[in-house]
């Protein structure tokens, strides 16, 4: 079947098998390999992307379901000249990543969380990221980064 969706602002379309998962469409068809597959069982959040601005686990969604919608992946956040998104910069500044495997998913889930909740406190960040696992950092610096970024992002979104 043919699927067509706006990915990071650009309309992308391709002929795929009906059973193609969104994460495979993003990685294998579009070549956007920033979105990772961790558990492949909807538990770890490494594959988190935004669909119409909301976080979803792309290993548990069919590309077909999202045809006609807008998808944002980690590659869509920085400016074209490479300037990092405030959230990405906050992750860097706060040392919120070590191996980096969970990071694209963490950043996308955090972006959705900040968009939905105007005034996050530490508890709300921890609960809001409960679907994203990190085996390296122990989470503290991720929480710090999200809290730092929300102040900076403010009205920008």
């Amino acid at each position: 079947m043919r699927v067509e969706m706006k990915v990071n602002g650009v309309t992308r379309s391709a002929e795929v098998e009906d059973r193609t998962l969104l994460v495979h469409f993003i990685r294998d068809v579009l070549g956007l390999t920033g979105t990772n597959v961790g558990c492949d069982t909807s538990s770890c959040g490494a594959c988190t992307v935004l669909v119409n601005g909301e976080s979803v686990k792309s290993c548990t969604v069919l590309a077909a379901q999202v045809s006609g919608e807008e998808v944002t992946t980690i590659e869509g956040l920085a400016e074209p000249d490479g300037t990092l998104h405030p959230l990405q910069r906050a992750f860097q500044d706060n040392h919120a990543l070590q191996c980096g495997y969970c990071t694209p998913g963490m950043v996308m889930a955090s972006l959705s969380l900040i968009n939905e909740h105007p005034n996050l406190d530490e508890k709300a960040v921890r609960e809001g990221l409960e679907g994203n696992l990190c085996r390296c950092t122990g989470y503290h610096n991720i929480v710090k980064a999200v809290l730092a970024a929300q102040g900076e992002m403010g009205a920008k979104l």
């Binding site: 909807s42 959040g45 976080s55 979803v56 686990k57 959705s112 409960e130 679907g131 994203n132």
Partner: peptide
């Protein structure tokens, strides 16, 4: 139920 991404779907 699950986590925010699950609840979006």
């Amino acid at each position: 139920v699950g986590d925010p991404a699950v609840r979006h779907c």
